[in-house]
Design a protein around this nucleic acid. Structure first.
Length: 258
DNA sequence: ATGCCCGCTTGCAGCGGA
């Protein structure tokens, strides 16, 4: 089974790129972020024509998350992160696919730091960590996949010293991410490739992709109930080089049969 | 320190992204 996460940066603007990648990569389940579209503008017909069922949680202009499953409709289990009923941003969606619980997240960027956006990021991360802890207690096969907007370590940044004060790399968010790992979650790509430089994002500016000035922001975290099934993991970085591409590339893992 | 690029908008310039 192949599971992927992809920040599409506008699902309608990127639809040709998304469909081309789905046809090429043939993932069984996909978490999408940054739909940048309200619910009624989700391109369901095109997704279904490509062979995928979908659940989604959209929002006008910004944010928005979706979960796709090949040949099936994901069974939605949650569409808000618990703990703050006033939070209206569409950044979390959870569904069961093929016996696995998939949490699809788009963690806030948090820049500029300090400031209200930074505070929102820390609050969101705290709520996410509490929900992740609750999910661990269930003992279920859970995967939390998405754009975490955190580079977990030095080797996840092309030039770490330039990013020390940035909301994506400040000690607070790196510590929050490390806390997830300490709690028992497995960072799939880092687990299988402990020393490699791995990037999942290249800025549109300054020819970042051409210079390979990238960041690793998109992660798949596996609960202990499913981590032993992990086989391979990678980044489809060539997709970032396609015309009209997102600034993120798709990230994927494969799992052995249960 | 800013713009560089990109998609989005009760749109044609401003915002958010990372």
């Amino acid at each position: 089974m192949k599971i992927a996460t992809y920040n599409v940066n506008g699902i309608n603007g990127r639809l040709p790129v998304l469909l081309r990648w789905l046809g090429e990569a043939q993932p069984d389940a996909v978490c999408l972020q940054e739909l940048k579209a309200p619910d009624e503008r989700f391109p369901l017909a095109a997704i279904e024509a490509a062979g995928y069922g979908a659940v989604w949680h959209g929002q006008k202009s910004w944010n928005g998350v979706a979960i796709l499953a090949r040949g099936a409709k994901p069974v939605e289990t949650r569409r808000f992160l618990p703990g703050n009923p006033d939070d209206t941003q569409s950044r979390y969606l959870e569904a069961a696919v093929n016996g696995i619980i998939l949490g699809c997240l788009y963690l806030p960027n948090g820049n500029p730091a300090p400031g209200p956006k930074w505070e929102y990021k820390l609050d969101w991360f705290g709520r996410f960590a509490r929900h992740a802890a609750d999910m661990l207690k269930t003992g279920l096969p859970v995967i939390l996949a998405g754009d975490y907007n955190v580079m977990p370590g030095e080797r996840d940044v092309y030039k770490p010293e330039r990013w020390t004060d940035d909301a994506l790399f400040r000690p607070e968010v790196r510590a929050a991410y490390a806390g997830l790992i300490d709690a028992g979650w497995t960072d799939a790509l880092r687990h299988l490739h402990p020393e490699e430089r791995i990037y999942t994002f290249w800025d549109y500016l300054r020819n970042a992709y051409g210079r390979d000035a990238g960041l690793r922001l998109d992660h798949l975290l596996l609960a202990p109930a499913i981590a032993p099934r992990l086989r391979t993991a990678g980044v489809d970085r060539h997709v970032r080089g396609w015309d009209k591409s997102s600034d993120h590339a798709p990230v994927w893992i494969t799992l052995a049969k249960p």
